[in-house]
């Protein structure tokens, strides 16, 4: 592949790399797997890049490929045995209106999201990214109504985990 294509890809990916980091954060539980998944997503994005026509936004296109990699294509090299303990070093609070109770609840919520299955995580991810149900449904290949129903169920599930 020619170098100008490579250059354009690398600069766009660098700019939007947080999308991938956020997906890695939901789907992995330690730094090594985070890096590993980040790399696999980058490779898959690069492989698919020649088909990226620019008729959609780079980010919309990247969401799809990155989620597909995390849910379907990626093969974990090592299986993590430990249960996911959310690392508070990744998750620090820098804001002034520090609210202990809220912090605890958010910690619990992250833990709860980690317990969801791969598909539910994808729905939560897109919800957190402010995607509408049309895009969520289109990305996963399900109907909009069912995406909405599933999302409501996930909300219920999270509520039950956080407030048992």
């Amino acid at each position: 592949m020619n170098s100008s294509l490579e250059q354009s890809f690398v600069s766009q990916l660098k700019e939007h790399q947080n999308i991938i980091h956020k997906i890695c954060r939901l789907y992995t539980s330690d730094e090594d797997s985070h890096k590993d998944l980040f790399q696999e997503i980058t490779i898959q994005l690069w492989k698919a890049f020649p088909q990226f026509r620019g008729d959609s936004k780079f980010t919309t296109w990247a969401y799809r490929v990155a989620l597909n990699t995390a849910i379907t294509l990626y093969r974990k090299k090592t299986k993590s045995i430990n249960t996911i303990e959310f690392d508070s070093t990744i998750h620090r609070f820098a804001h002034d209106d520090y609210n202990y109770e809220e912090e605890e609840q958010i910690k619990l919520l992250y833990k709860a999201v980690h317990q969801l299955n791969d598909i539910e995580k994808a729905l939560v991810f897109m919800y957190l990214e402010d995607k509408d149900y049309t895009e969520i449904a289109e990305t996963l290949g399900i109907s909009e109504v069912n995406a909405r129903v599933k999302m409501n169920r996930i909300k219920g599930k999270l509520k039950r985990i956080v407030n048992p």
């Binding site: 690398v10 980091h21 956020k22 790399q39 804001h95 919520l109 999201v113 957190l128 999270l158």
Partner: peptide, 29 residues
């Protein structure tokens, strides 16, 4: 609801992610 609380926090955390340089991305390809 719970997810909206998470969403509020989700956006605040972006600056904490590691920054991957262009060189590192080139190497990954």
């Amino acid at each position: 609801d719970e997810l909206d609380l998470l969403k509020k926090d989700w956006k605040k955390n972006e600056p904490q992610f590691p920054k991957i340089s262009e060189q590192e991305i080139y190497a990954m390809l």
